[in-house]
Design a protein around this nucleic acid. Structure first.
Lengths: 151, 151
DNA sequence: TGACATTTGTTCGTATTAGAACTATTATTT
DNA sequence: AAATAATAGTTCTAATACGAACAAATGTCA
């Protein structure tokens, strides 16, 4: 016989601390990631950098492919790419065999930014993750995968 | 002798899968949470519900206190509270002993929404988290705390 | 007390963010 | 082939989201 959930006892549910930790862990990471981008001097927002980094070492991707990898919704993606085009870092081109798709790829300038910014970002983030023991990292990855799977 | 990080090998760094899982696990949770709020019929956004749920069972909190608990930036919070005031769910009042602070508290209508919406949300989220074994949940919580601590 | 630093919340500008409606194009079915 | 469905992007609206600049109030220190 489990007790019914009320406004009074809801906050004390068993899973609440876990939920809070998930949010806070992500937030801590996201804030640091954003700060790195802000202070790196490349003038990229997190989303813009995400797209640039996704397009790197690639012959170009469609908007939907970029969306799948970056988890950016298509409606949002249009605006992000608009601004990257305006900055001259990315270009759009219609595909021949399917005129619905738009191929997005890095310009020479975009390649240059990718080549410089990506390693720096990975370096800085990696330094933080390496504070965890390799086995803890392994553990964390498995745990997060399980967590993701319940939704 | 560790290899230098280049644009070519950066994506293959050891910690990248873990980072990706963190983002995806959070995203999965956040999407589900948002969907629940959208379909609950209370007409609250995630941020608005977050504030309402934080104010519940409380005699009112200052904006900075709300910000600490919800992780909403103060600049954003002003707008969120504005809209909650407009909906009649929340009220602002200056504090006597410190005229800088604004005490935010639920109205009767806000209490009612809290009393109904909060248990439902907790119930639905709890059902998902309970798909994990109790020991896995314990594990996950500790892991996320460690993850948070590196940033 | 007076100068200065802190804290609190608002305002502002720019950039997401999500979903819904829409257009154009391609695929499928009858 | 004509009708219909499905897919890819764009556009639109409302609401975050964040840092920076700001004003008001409080705290600190000389």
């Amino acid at each position: 016989m489990t007790k019914p959930i009320t406004a009074k006892n809801a906050a004390k549910q068993d899973f609440m601390p876990l939920m809070r930790e998930l949010v806070r862990a992500y937030q801590a990471f996201a804030s640091y990631d954003a700060r790195l981008h802000r202070e790196s001097g490349f003038g990229l927002t997190v989303s813009q950098a995400d797209v640039i980094f996704t397009l790197g070492n690639t012959d170009g991707l469609t908007c939907s492919e970029i969306g799948e990898r970056t988890l950016i919704t298509k409606g949002t993606l249009t605006g992000v790419i608009d601004r990257l085009v305006k900055k001259g870092l990315v270009k759009r081109s219609r595909m021949n065999h399917d005129a619905r798709c738009v191929q997005v790829s890095l310009t020479a300038k975009g390649e240059k930014v990718f080549g410089e910014a990506f390693p720096l970002q990975v370096e800085a983030l990696g330094a933080r993750f390496e504070r965890l023991d390799p086995d803890v990292r392994k553990q964390a990855q498995a745990t997060l995968a399980a967590l993701r799977a319940i939704f």
